[in-house]
Simulated assay, not measured.
Amino acid sequence: MAPHYASPIAGLPGQMALHTGRATFNEAYALIPRGVMRDIVTSYLPHWRETRLWVIARPMSGFAETFSQYIVEVAPGGGSERPEPNPAAEGVIFVVEGQVDLTIEGQAHVLERGGYAFLPPGTAWTLANAGNAPARFHWVRKRYEAAEGIDQPPAFVTNEQNEPIRWMPGTNDTWGTTRFVEPSDLRHDMHVNIVTLEPGAVIPFEETHVMEHGLYVLEGKAVYRLNRDWVEVEAGDFMWLRAFCPQACYAGPERFRYLLYKDVNRHAKLPF
């Protein structure tokens, strides 16, 4: 049985709801709380039927530089035969609600909750919701950076329930990562993993590194260090962290898990 994953609550808050919230956007990080992902901020895409989406990251000055991330909601009967307009874009799909029929280069797959697919650039794929309930999934997109003499990675499909949690040494199996790609596989220039912290677990130092991050909280709550601030986060929140933003975490009373994007395995771009 796949765990429950958070997704946008949609709708609109009542007129008597308090305005006070946690939304933050500054030079080092952004926090988009679950409570602001409402109907009024959804968008639509060309060549997608019965589909709406929340755009939670996009390349722009002072925000995400290397990736975009959508939470896509496909109604029954919806989908696309022309989903990706950019032949240079690679993608990851992670299903958080319902199920979708995904066809990759003519091969059919059913992705249920926890389903994960990697889509290399130039891949022919389609997606449909043939069920009776809406389906929701994360779609992470990045322009693939080819490296001379290294093959492009192939497409693959799995489910997070079939992948082990790799526990960090010395943590008594309380902090670990579900890795869908081996870190040393240089064909890949991005990782989209799941990080798990058991109740009370910690990331015990301020990680400060070159990887840009997108973090979507799938389960639980925690107090997260973002640059100079300690911020309380919960299931359904999204965080963007620019490169070198200090980060750490204290997990709450329940299992805390998040979907994590980072760019890896390529030279830094130089301005000359």
Rank of each mutant, 00 (worst) to 15 (best):
P121D: 06
P154I: 02
P33E: 03
A155D: 05
E73M: 14
L241W: 06
F156I: 06
F94A: 07
A57S: 15
Q247Y: 10
V231C: 07
I93Y: 09
N132E: 14
M60A: 10
P13D: 11
Y258H: 15
R136V: 03
P183Y: 02
E50D: 13
R266C: 01
G220M: 08
L12H: 10
F156S: 09
A75Y: 00
H109E: 07
G106M: 09
M60D: 08
R266I: 01
R58T: 12
F67S: 11
I93D: 06
E198F: 00
C245P: 02
T196M: 06
T103N: 10
W139N: 10
V110P: 00
V210K: 15
Q161Y: 00
P83W: 00
A155F: 11
E81P: 03
S184R: 03
T158Y: 04
V181N: 06
V181Y: 04
P121Y: 04
P120C: 13
G115L: 08
M211C: 04
A251N: 09
G106R: 13
P83A: 04
V264R: 03
H138F: 13
R255Y: 00
Q69S: 13
R143D: 12
Y5H: 10
T126Q: 13
L102C: 10
Y44D: 13
E219K: 15
I165N: 06
T103Q: 14
T171C: 04
A64D: 07
R187V: 03
Y250Q: 07
P169C: 03
A268E: 13
Y29S: 01
D39K: 08
V223A: 10
N159M: 06
S43R: 05
Y116K: 12
R143H: 14
P183E: 04
P85T: 07
T208V: 06
H47V: 04
G149W: 01
E148A: 15
I9P: 01
D263L: 01
L197C: 09
A128V: 01
H109A: 08
A248V: 02
R225Y: 14
H138K: 01
N86E: 10
G11D: 11
L53F: 08
F94S: 10
V217K: 03
W125P: 12
I40R: 12
M16I: 11
L31S: 02
W48G: 10
M37S: 10
N193G: 03
K262I: 01
N172W: 01
Y116Q: 12
G98H: 09
R228I: 15
G176C: 08
L241I: 05
N162H: 11
P271A: 14
P59E: 08
L53T: 05
H138Y: 08
Q152D: 03
E207W: 00
V264G: 02
Y258T: 04
E148C: 03
P204S: 12
T171I: 03
R228G: 07
A108D: 15
V95R: 03
D263S: 06
I40L: 08
